[in-house]
Design a protein around this nucleic acid. Sequence first.
DNA 1: ATGTGACTTTAAGTCCGTA
DNA 2: ATACGGACTTAAAGTCACA
Lengths: 81, 81
Amino acid sequence: MEKVSKPHAARMVFAKNLRQVRRLKEVSQEALALQAGLSRTYVSEVERGERNVSIDNMGLLADALGVKLKELLDPEMLKTL
Amino acid sequence: MEKVSKPHAARMVFAKNLRQVRRLKEVSQEALALQAGLSRTYVSEVERGERNVSIDNMGLLADALGVKLKELLDPEMLKTL
DNA sequence: ATGTGACTTTAAGTCCGTA
DNA sequence: ATACGGACTTAAAGTCACA
């Protein structure tokens, strides 16, 4: 049996990593949203995997946190820290 | 001077890598679109960086090509091949 | 086999509030 | 500081005909 990846797998990885990195850097959702030029409520939803975030906004969020975008897409990100 | 990343940097990296991997695997836009469950014209636009593609669709495209999504976001992807 | 413009439908993204 | 909801506007998703 081929393991087929779930529909929102990438979305959930990004959501989880985003929150993890943000907390590690001790920045609030508000501050992150401001830095990225996005709304606070939106960032909240992205972190919970409720929004199908676009690549442009992913780039803004990665930049705002000072990390590479590819890192936020890495399911193993925790270990690389 | 701090080098500030351009607005659509991530989008263009993804576009370029997507096309590169697709051609390397010798699959047409049509076949890729079919495999990913997307329209052919849409894939064409994504590869040219004209569409602000969502993370869900990025996941579908990465899966269809049999690569990790994080690889398609790596600006240095060429060298890792 | 791919690029492009025009188009409609859907969901992204914002802003207000509450707890 | 964050989750969540409603109402709203903008942009992405998705399709088509033709170059």
